[in-house]
């Protein structure tokens, strides 16, 4: 009986005190989180700052955030393609390959995904099982095998070898299959009963419905082919076929004056990051969705 009377007068002050404490806690939490977020982004900030520095300055003040003098030398050097850094070639190859691969993946992945989800044909079950087992093969394991097959087919060091194997992506097919299975059948069945053929139903009824999934697939395909490295390492070697990833990797890891030229290296890396960064910030929720729903196995 005494307890309630004891606490009765308290609430007013207690509430305001706890409210104050809560506000402080929130402030502290936000500050701590901001510090962690800053630590996460700091490498990119330093990279950006260093890209505008001169070599001596980058070496003297690696933590300096304000380039002084402000220099565009590394950008100019990259685009003039001097000193064995064939940046324009790398960029051209990366853009070309990423565009073709993205278009191919969106088209072929959705075709196959639709067939596996909807069309009844012999061998469908087996193909689905094979698809899932192919997805489980770790990518790095395939390096030597891919080289062997490309060599065997006589297409080593060609665009064909760099592009064709990437045109279909097992995970992408699976994502599209899952998507088509999740949309109601009625609409396309109605279209078919109305006399539309399978191809026409697919093209003008099914695909327009699949827009959100197609956007996600486009973005993930672009990101994947833009950042692709191991496949290009084992399927091509000449300087003409270097992409941003293989060219940059060779430039950075090769002993071309280790420890120097950091503004140049970081600028090249920065420019290789920018397209994906733009796509990421514009279409972020698709990244989030793709990262999460990537694939649902079993």
């Amino acid at each position: 009986m005494t307890a309630p009377t004891m606490t009765k007068p308290a609430p007013d002050t207690a509430r305001s005190r706890s409210g104050e404490r809560r506000r402080t806690a929130r402030l502290v939490a936000t500050l701590v989180m901001s510090a962690v977020a800053l630590a996460y982004l700091m490498p990119f900030v330093l990279q950006l700052a260093t890209s505008f520095k001169t070599d001596p300055q980058a070496a003297a003040s690696p933590l300096g955030l304000v380039p002084d003098p402000f220099s565009l030398a590394s950008y100019r050097q990259l685009f003039s393609g001097a000193e064995g850094v064939a940046f324009p070639t790398w960029l051209g190859n990366s853009v070309f390959i990423a565009l073709v691969v993205t278009a191919g993946r969106v088209f072929f992945d959705s075709l196959a995904g639709y067939a596996l989800a909807r069309l009844r044909f012999r061998g469908r079950g087996l193909l689905t099982v094979l698809l899932i087992s192919v997805m489980a093969v770790p990518g790095v394991i395939l390096m030597i095998p891919k080289f062997l097959v490309v060599q065997y087919l006589g297409i080593y060091d060609t665009y064909t070898a760099m592009i064709v194997p990437l045109l279909v992506d097992a995970v992408g097919v699976f994502v599209m299959k899952q998507f088509f299975e999740s949309v109601p059948r009625e609409i396309e069945e109605a279209a078919r009963v109305d006399g539309a053929g399978i191809l026409r139903t697919y093209w003008s009824v099914v695909l327009p419905m699949a827009r959100p999934a197609l956007i996600t697939l486009t973005i993930l395909s672009f990101q994947g082919s833009w950042n692709e490295f191991t496949h290009f390492v084992v399927t091509a070697q000449s300087a003409d076929h270097a992409t941003l990833t293989t060219g940059l990797a060779q430039f950075v890891s090769g002993g071309l004056g280790a420890g120097t030229q950091y503004p140049l290296k970081l600028t090249a890396a920065l420019l290789a990051t920018v397209p994906v960064a733009i796509v990421f910030f514009v279409f972020q929720r698709h990244f989030v969705r793709g990262g999460n729903a990537g694939a649902l196995k079993e």
Partner: peptide, 28 residues
């Protein structure tokens, strides 16, 4: 969320280059 997720979407080659710079002996 964006800040923590962003490094994941970038090229492994590009961020490795950045880390080479950050961890050089007289680096950041």
């Amino acid at each position: 969320r964006t800040a923590f997720y962003f490094p994941s979407v970038t090229s492994s080659i590009a961020v490795s280059t950045v880390f080479l710079f950050l961890f050089q002996s007289s680096g950041a």
